[in-house]
């Protein structure tokens, strides 16, 4: 204990918290950028994925490796769900002018999130679900006197890799370029022959599969509950605004900025006022750079 320098550990842990914020915001961010809608059910999808992961992990029927396999299968499953979701509920909105589509998407996705909450609460109960990292054999690592939860480290690693992959994907691949084109100028992209419906469907699927990953890690790191989705979405809003919606690595930067702001202000200034300090930092950043920390 004496060997652990609290300051270094604090900085490290605030980075890890930023990783969690980024993880739960990245899918939300790309959907907003490319499809042009706010998916207010994103937080609920994260929660539902966490619930499924919890149910699989805590069942005693199968050996651990098979359970892990099933949990990993959640990611493509959620991607498929995202494709269907876009096709049925979002596609009709995209025929409208962008501004109307954005407003309608608020109603549609908020409505969907309410349905999801109620179905969950009535079928699996209202209690929070959570798994300790011990029960999954995820160790607590001590390196150079710094103690770190491997689940949190995993989240940060994953999000950094995912952000970089996305960055490369968007630069190099055809679909990625289409995504970029749409996010820069929708009409021009359509004019140039970009398949808008397909691209937005793929983007949505990508967004929900990222939500699935977020849920799987969140149930280990924190907890999931039927009515905690919307606060998570609101957090994601703050994260992507802070980081800027202009870039794929925006959520990562925004998440780390928010995580550090919250943690450091709670440690050095006042734990009660730290959420407020985070708000003030958010507003200050916006006023200085009205489109977030990362520019287009």
């Amino acid at each position: 204990m004496a060997a652990a320098p609290p300051l270094a550990e604090l900085v490290l842990n605030s980075l890890l918290l930023g990783g969690i914020y980024a993880l739960t915001s990245l899918g939300f961010s790309i959907v907003f950028r490319v499809v042009g809608i706010l998916n207010l059910a994103h937080g609920d999808l994260v929660m539902v994925s966490g619930l499924f992961a919890y149910l699989v992990f805590t069942s005693d029927l199968m050996p651990f490796t098979i359970r892990l396999l099933f949990v990993i299968l959640l990611i493509p499953l959620f991607a498929a769900f995202g494709l269907a979701f876009e096709r049925v509920l979002i596609r009709p909105l995209l025929r409208k002018p962008p501004n109307e589509a954005l407003l309608s998407s608020v109603l549609v996705t908020l409505g969907f999130s309410l349905v999801l909450q109620d179905v969950w609460a009535n079928s699996f109960g209202t209690l929070q679900k959570s798994i300790t990292s011990e029960s999954l054999g995820l160790p607590i690592i001590t390196v150079a006197g710094l103690t770190v939860a491997s689940s949190r480290l995993l989240a940060l690693l994953f999000i950094v890799i995912a952000s970089i992959l996305l960055f490369v994907f968007v630069r190099k691949s055809y679909v990625g370029k289409a995504m970029r084109a749409i996010s820069q100028d929708r009409e021009a992209a359509m004019f140039l022959g970009v398949n808008l419906p397909n691209t937005s469907m793929i983007t949505f699927g990508l967004g929900t599969s990222l939500a699935a990953v977020g849920g799987i890690l969140l149930v280990i790191i924190q907890s999931v509950a039927p009515f905690s989705g919307l606060p998570l979405t609101v957090k994601a809003l703050a994260v992507i605004v802070l980081g800027g919606t202009g870039s794929m690595i925006g959520p990562l930067i925004g998440g780390i900025a928010l995580g550090s702001a919250e943690t450091l202000s709670a440690f050095f200034i006042d734990p009660y006022w730290s959420p407020g300090i985070a708000v003030i930092i958010l507003v200050a950043v916006l006023l200085l750079r009205p489109t977030g920390l990362v520019r287009r």
Partner: peptide, 9 residues
Amino acid sequence: NFANPDFTA
């Protein structure tokens, strides 16, 4: 914070 409070600090 009724959602997912973090107590790192």
